[in-house]
């Protein structure tokens, strides 16, 4: 306002280069208040970037200290003895355990979640669907420590029957051989992780399925398609990328899950051929379990394994976000 009142005499007939007057006004942020506010908010945005960079930098720095002292191969060694002389540790067991338990979780959780999402959007009566969606939303908020407590004190004793059955009928494969130990194996961890990531995969898939153009579905119906054919021909193709990214978000959560795994798994540093045998470990679980007795060197070694976890989850989440970003209209992306 000040600008206009100070220059009342600016004649409309001014010659060509009259631009300098407008330059400041056009930039907008000329008042001190505006400048400060823009600075603050842009500063916060930059802070987020700096934070991410700092996380990567500090973890890498501490990890490099540990790895440079490490006498064993960091990626292939089966030992975890960072406070020994010389220190020897490797992440082979952790990588194996993390990948296996996450795969089990995904195999169980993705089909079931897609099923629930379809149930909410296409099968359940509208009222019931809304209620279920709400309950699933709430369940996403249950903390992992409670899942861990439930897993350790309720799920583990109840899985013995299933373990016995798997051993009886599939034991010959070697993968499902059970030697009657407590069912605190990677398989149980996988089941528990599946239950934990179910809500997030369901929520995102539901959002995507809800956005399927009504016309596609009605066109299929008009051609005489059954409900399943409608889903297979119009809903699933439309929602495929959304379901993939939802699954990857769930995978990211499963990879980094700590306390529930630490409470359920009876861990050790070896790899078993059978999924039902106790032993093994995951990155996050190992950090939580080994932290208390860790020396300075031990902490750095744990940070090194955390860095690997960080990179893996970064890749998984980044990929998921890129897939979502290609389809901007998925508002479910903020789950």
């Amino acid at each position: 306002m000040d600008i206009t009142t100070q220059k009342p005499a600016a004649p409309p007939a001014a010659p060509g280069p009259a631009a300098p007057v407008d330059k400041r006004a056009a930039r907008g942020a000329t008042r001190p208040g505006d400048r400060i506010f823009l600075g603050l908010s842009r500063g916060s945005g930059i802070f987020v970037l700096v934070l991410m960079a700092a996380i990567a930098a500090f973890l890498t720095y501490r990890a490099s200290i540990a790895i440079s002292e490490n006498e064993a191969n960091f990626f292939t060694s089966f030992d975890w003895n960072p406070s020994g002389i010389p220190p020897e540790f490797g992440i082979a067991v952790l990588a194996f355990g993390t990948v296996v338990s996450s795969i089990i979780a995904m195999v169980i959780a993705v089909p079931v979640s897609v099923g629930i999402a379809l149930f909410i959007t296409h099968y359940a009566p509208r009222r019931l669907g809304g209620l279920i969606a709400y309950v699933i939303d709430l369940l996403a908020a249950v903390p992992s420590i409670v899942y861990g407590l439930w897993g350790a004190l309720f799920l583990v004793p109840h899985l013995e029957g299933l373990y016995g059955w798997l051993d009886d009928y599939l034991g010959w494969t070697g993968i499902f051989e059970w030697n009657d130990g407590a069912p605190r194996s990677l398989f149980t961890v996988g089941i528990l992780l599946a239950i934990m990531i179910l809500p997030i995969i369901t929520n995102v898939s539901r959002e995507v399925f809800r956005q399927v153009p009504r016309m596609h579905e009605e066109a299929a119906l008009a051609l005489g398609a059954t409900r399943w054919e409608v889903i297979r021909m119009s809903v699933l193709p439309f929602g495929r990328s959304g379901v993939i990214s939802a699954s990857m978000l769930g995978l990211g959560r499963a990879l980094g899950e700590t306390m529930a795994v630490a409470m359920v798994l009876s861990s050790s540093f070896d790899i078993n051929a059978s999924l039902l045998d106790t032993g093994g470990g995951t990155f996050a679980q190992n950090i939580a379990s080994k932290f208390n007795e860790a020396t300075e060197m031990g902490r750095d070694a744990l940070i090194a394994s955390g860095l690997v976890l960080f990179v893996i989850t970064l890749l998984v989440n980044g990929a998921a976000r890129l897939i979502i970003a290609r389809r901007k209209e998925y508002s479910g992306a903020n789950a």
């Binding site: 987020v48 970037l49 934070l51 991410m52 996380i55 973890l59 978000l249 990211g252 959560r253 990879l255 980094g256 899950e257 700590t258 996050a284 950090i287 939580a288 955390g306 976890l309 960080f310 989850t313 970064l314 998984v316 989440n317 980044g318 998921a320 976000r321 970003a325 992306a333």
Partner: peptide, 13 residues
């Protein structure tokens, strides 16, 4: 992008 990615940082990291 990085806010999105940050959502997925495991709490232990």
């Amino acid at each position: 992008f990085f806010v999105d990615v940050m959502t997925g940082i495991p709490s232990i990291v």
